[in-house]
Amino acid sequence: MACLLLATLFISFNGLVPLVHSYGHANTCRSFCGNLTLDYPFAVRPGCGHPGFRELLFCINDVLMLHISSGSYRVLDIDYAYEALVLHDPHMSTCDSIVLGHRGNGFVVESWRAPYLNPTPDNVFMLLGCSAQSPLYQGFPGKHLPCRNVSGLGCEEYYGCSAWDAIGPRRTGILYGSGPPDCCAMPYETVKAVNLSRLDCQGYSSAYSRAPLRVSGPDEWAYGIQVKYSVQGNEGFCRACEATGGSCGYDIDGNSDLCMCGSWNSTSNCDSAHSAASYTRIWSSEVPLAGMI
C-alpha cells in the first residue's frame, strides 16, 4: 500500500514538472539572419510576429530580404528602438553610380500593408530623368515644380556627385518645352508610391538624414530607404504576452493575435493558458490512480 502511494505521488509530481519548467520557455519566434536579429514584430517563421508583416521577410543564404509589390530589397539594419529598417535596392543610384533605364524598384507597398510600413519623413526620394509628361509635373506649370529639399537633402547637392560628370545634368527646367530637371527631390508623402513606370522616370536615388550627425556633402549621405514600421496599437497585447514568458504571434488562418506558450497558444497571455493546461494535466495524471488506492 505504501509503495502504491509513493508511486501515485511520483507520477503526479512528474506530471507537474514539465509544466513548471515549460512556464519559463525560450522565445520560439526570435531568430537570426546573418548579423541581424529578428524579433517582434518581424519573423521569418509563419505564425510568428505581427500579421501586418507576414510574408514580408525572407532569409536567403544569411541575407535578409524584404519583399513588397515593387520588388525585393536587402535589409541592412533593423533599429528596434527607433522602429525603422534600412533597405538597399541594387539598382538605386548613389553618389558613385547613376542607374537609369527604369531598372530601380522604387518603393510601392501593398495597400493593406501601408498602415504598418512607410518611408520616414526625413527620407528623400530623388527621381531621375522624368519626362515632361510625368504625373509629377502635371498641375505645376512654369517654375512651380513639386521638387524640394527634404531634411537638407536635395538635387542641387546631389548634382555635386562625381557620377554626374559623364552626364552633365540639366539643373533647371522652367518650362516643359525646355524639359524638366534631370533630378526632382521630394518626400514619399508627396507621391505615396515611387513607381518609376507610372511616374515615367528613368531611375531614382534615396537617402535619409543621419541627424544630429553633420555631413559635408552628398558623398557622405546615407543612401538607402529608411522605412518606419508600426504595429498600430498592438503593443499592449505583446507586452502582456512576453511578460508571462510567451512569444507574440498570430493565427495564420484568421490573422488574430496569439501568445505562443511553448506547447500551447493563448489569445491573451501565458498565465491564463498555463493555469488551464496545469489543471488538465494534473487531472489526467491522478484520476486513473485514484481507483487503485
Rank of each mutant, 00 (worst) to 15 (best):
T8A: 15
N14I: 11
G15Y: 04
V17I: 12
H21Q: 08
S22L: 09
Y23A: 03
H25S: 11
C33W: 02
N35S: 14
F42Y: 08
P46R: 12
G47Q: 07
G47H: 09
H50M: 04
F53E: 07
E55W: 12
Y80G: 01
L85A: 06
V86H: 09
H88Q: 12
P90D: 08
C95M: 02
C95Q: 01
V99L: 09
F125S: 02
L127F: 02
L128H: 08
A132H: 12
S134Q: 10
S134I: 06
Y137P: 05
V150W: 08
E157I: 02
C161Q: 01
G168C: 05
R170M: 05
I174Q: 11
P181V: 08
C184P: 04
T190M: 14
V191L: 11
K192D: 03
S197Q: 14
R198S: 11
L199H: 07
Q202F: 02
P212L: 09
V215E: 10
P218E: 00
A222F: 07
G224L: 08
V227C: 03
K228P: 02
S230G: 00
Q232Y: 11
G236A: 13
F237Y: 12
F237S: 01
C238E: 11
E242L: 08
G249S: 01
Y250V: 00
Y250T: 04
G262D: 03
G262W: 00
S275A: 13
I282W: 10
S284V: 14
S285F: 12
M292E: 02
